[in-house]
Design a binder for these strands. Structure first.
Lengths: 184, 184
DNA sequence: CGCACCATGTAATGCGTTACATGATTTT
DNA sequence: AAAATCATGTAACGCATTACATGGTGCG
């Protein structure tokens, strides 16, 4: 149940709808936390029942009504509590490509190399995105709202992790491709 | 449904029980794929229904019976098919620490630094484990069964990814700690 | 004597995805 | 005229975790 805290985190900046929350997530936390629209709606409903958020309907001219969620004092307290709680264990990861590679000894060299080259391209592209587009977005945010300067430092730290991660993936793929070519 | 392929992958080496599959996973794929015992049992049952594996009971003296699973021809075919299928998209990740950090602008410097230092310790330990213990296990495996030399190359590649990943995490944490200390 | 391990599983619950549904407005 | 976007949601399903249950063997 960490999606809850992602939503509380955004609502702590300003009230917004489930739809807007999804859009914010897609351009900011998607790199390390994501959710489908339907899961966001369901989670908001549950959070309202728990008293962490409240909602009211806003009518619009010619558009469907918006259900705007606001964080409650209880929600703020829960969020602060969660933020201060230390993360004492590493999270287990799931990496589909590594699973495939682990069992690929029966494939021929060429098939493995094709797989690895494709993967290299994907990670390379993602690395570029973090280095340029994502970086620019954060810098603009920081420039437009100087009161969020501290926040922007942390946002950029999470972006930087993405950049380093993708670069590492590319480096590992280069290493592994070379190994397969020479030793396999 | 990738757990299925992890299980087929192991059963492709030799028939074994759900209990043994769990033990193998814990010492080999845990780094990039894991599952609870109960999920493994449930999945094996489903795979049997699909015809990918077969099982028979082996009695033991003084021990509970063992239900030994064997991969079928259909299972082998399914596995080969999955191995050859290219991974055309990057998997979205979830990183609890990054989520917390992203929303931590309201915390004080000291609280953030404590969190990051703890995390650094955990990743540092994990990096050491990959470099030494895990590496040794794979080398011994390769030495004991020379017919699995190719397999061992791939196993070590997945281990190496873990090593690089943990080193990157440590590097990022050092960078981020320094940034917080000077700019936050 | 008590604890851990071997080995099996069920049940309940929670997290997450996919598919389906609606209906108006804006864009191509 | 067709497609995409705005905005809401429900229903069904699948993946995953936690808790519960059993009962014998081996070890300190």
């Amino acid at each position: 149940m960490s999606l809850q805290y992602a939503l509380l985190g955004f609502l702590n900046y300003q009230p917004m709808t489930g739809y807007e929350l999804k859009q914010f997530m897609d351009v900011s936390t998607a790199n390390f936390w994501h959710a489908k629209q339907s899961q966001i709606y369901a989670t908001l409903k549950k959070m309202a029942k728990m008293g962490l958020v409240e909602s009211h309907i806003e009518a619009q001219n010619g558009r469907p009504d918006r259900r705007v969620y606001t964080i409650t004092e209880e929600g703020r307290a829960d969020m602060q509590n969660w933020l201060a709680r230390p993360v004492t264990e590493l999270q287990p990861k799931k990496e589909l490509l590594l699973l495939k590679l682990f069992f690929s000894a029966g494939l021929d060299k060429a098939a493995i190399l094709t797989q690895l080259h494709l993967q290299r391209k994907l990670h390379q592209q993602q690395a570029e995105q973090f280095k340029h587009e994502t970086k620019a977005v954060i810098q603009q945010f920081a420039a437009n709202m100087p009161q969020l300067a501290k926040d922007a430092l942390l946002w950029d730290a999470t972006r930087r992790f993405g950049e380093l991660y993708e670069e590492t993936a590319v480096r590992w793929l280069d290493e592994t491709i070379a190994m397969i070519e020479s030793d396999f």
